[in-house]
Design a protein around this nucleic acid. Sequence first.
DNA 1: CTGAAAGCGCTAACAC
DNA 2: GTGTTAGCGCTTTCAG
Lengths: 407, 407
Amino acid sequence: MAAQRHVTMNDVAKRAGVSLKTVSNVVNGYRFVRDATRRKVLDAIDELGYSVNVVAKSLREGRSNVIGISLPDMRLPYFAELYSCLAGEARAAGRRVIFAPSGVSRTNELDVLHGSFASLIDGLILSPKYLTGGDADKLNVDYPIVLIGEQMRTNARDRVITENEHGIYRATASLVAKGCRRIAVVGVGGKGVASEPMRLRGYRHALEDTGIALDTSLEIPADIWYQPAGADAVGVLFRDGLRVDGIVCMNDLLAMGVMQELRRRGVLVPDDVKVVGYDDSIDAQYFAPSLSSVDPDLRSVARTAIALLCARIDGVDPSSIDALRSVIPSPNASSQTTVSSVAPSVTAASESSESPAASRTGSYVVSRTGSSRSDAAANSGTPESVTGYVTVTVPSKLVERESTAVR
Amino acid sequence: MAAQRHVTMNDVAKRAGVSLKTVSNVVNGYRFVRDATRRKVLDAIDELGYSVNVVAKSLREGRSNVIGISLPDMRLPYFAELYSCLAGEARAAGRRVIFAPSGVSRTNELDVLHGSFASLIDGLILSPKYLTGGDADKLNVDYPIVLIGEQMRTNARDRVITENEHGIYRATASLVAKGCRRIAVVGVGGKGVASEPMRLRGYRHALEDTGIALDTSLEIPADIWYQPAGADAVGVLFRDGLRVDGIVCMNDLLAMGVMQELRRRGVLVPDDVKVVGYDDSIDAQYFAPSLSSVDPDLRSVARTAIALLCARIDGVDPSSIDALRSVIPSPNASSQTTVSSVAPSVTAASESSESPAASRTGSYVVSRTGSSRSDAAANSGTPESVTGYVTVTVPSKLVERESTAVR
DNA sequence: CTGAAAGCGCTAACAC
DNA sequence: GTGTTAGCGCTTTCAG
């Protein structure tokens, strides 16, 4: 039997014939311990199979080195991939990860924020589904939060978003470049997907910029961005007797449903219709025919989000962190290009006028918003004052494959 | 500002004008508290935005209500789905879930078991990748463990497995029933997949039982069960100049790669070759053509694993738990059908002799193994003695779709 | 039914 | 360099 129940530091101290504090010193890598003493302690630890009780440590230190992650649904490849990246980056940053699903219900999301889950974590990475811009005050908690995605639009938060508009813009433009002239978009009105307005905007701007007239009958709704909805969308297109030569899908699952249904109806991809998706999920390249898709670069999203959160936890200015330095403007710099202007609501299609050119560039863009210090800074030892909240936009790129090939 | 930093029970007690203990009583639903008192406390809690500090609670109680989950790779649909199910079932059981990736390295897996991660959890659900049967003693820790899958074969553990052999057996037999006579299997020798021998056995038995001669040149290896390997396998089949009319894939990812490559080479599915996969991953039905696949019923796997683990944590005999009652033989019953006889090693193809008929049935089967009490029972208040370890086999079923259709 | 005191395992002051 | 003490927020005796 290797491990007894609850081997404590005290047990180790006794076994090694030293004091409790010395054991603590060794365990925590305190430098000024005699080599002989250290060895004794280490041996005792080995013999007893001791490992620190992080619960006690957490209670005492007031921090746990655990990061909370709250995402809607792991079964969606997008979130599975995102989670995987976040867990990896957290691990690399020396933190553990604890998961609480969001998106179960509004109550559930509020409970994640305000319930006892919070006492387990030093900070939270949140991708809410039910909370909206109006709930901004619900985020006033005593630990730092980094939001991922467009949901819950408020400036007064650190946030990492992907280049939604630009991504779809390029996807659409690439279809035009390949000769498509009647291009449908599938996924309009997607429920609970805050990035839908940006994506629709990207589609429309691409058509405008390439001189193709908008035709709203080609903007096919899909409540749930899931394969069956993609199949249904094709049904709608056929029912209306519309001829299209290109279809932009707001995510890969829709695209798979679309391609499946096209095939069933004897339409060839890419010969008759070219299809492009969004997310570049792992299946996209192994789908038949392989699917061109917009890669949101979730690894960068994760790296940025974790770095940002860790900075806040440590009460450190994000711009002093390596992983963020290249991405965050210096505190002194005047306000940067503002990206993805705050949509007042998720009313989609109506106001297609803003969309600053900046969002069509291909590099990290950051905007500084708000001015309140991070709450974390208030109780961190670090006197370093923390500047305003930050929104990082991670560039996405189009990956071209068979489904948009020219033959 | 809703929440101040660290509102404590003491704060609530002062605010409500009662003692600390009374607050504790209210929070923990102790029955004998005057209604008026309870109301005062509840009001104070609301006003202050108090929620219990589960870290302190854990330290004091010696248990955290957190279940550890350690799986290899969330990007594989199989594990994403499994994780999602586990998290849902844990939630339903009133426990939180904390994740630590396994499969990073052997050291990492040992660290999950013996490192400080353990002090955060009451019990662990583990699907190891590097630890093998020889490491059985590494599982001697002071908290209960439930293993999922075939990896790390040892009787002296609670374990939930799926009906691997039977699943592939039926998949193969269904191809035969549809007229296939030269049936390949893809995925032989899959590295780090302990269920591979069972699956290969299922394939072979199905051929034997239907009177088709084995041809080992049709058993195509694939180290990694991933799309590219599936594509490669088709390459191998072609290179050898072999004609096949059916392909059994050891998982869906392989099947997708196979179908992709077949298509590229102008082979029609299901007309020329029928293909069947394993896992019934969410994409299987939206792949084109939709993929017949074996559904391992991960929701049942998760439900069983969580129920089993919770029983051990609570020091309760699993057979007294509702979710398990129908599945676990009564402690008094003599030893049940033994399922999936313990393979002495993962040497795959060599000993295809055992495989009891039981594993081809379609219902839950349980074997009792070992006799040691759960360690958990030793320090649980419950005097109820815990019986030997249990292996639950969850039945899987074949879902037939387009890729095996007869035309 | 309610209050006071002890202690879960650890770290941070401060002695020695 | 090392030992001693107090206390993180909570539950649990044990009195009242």
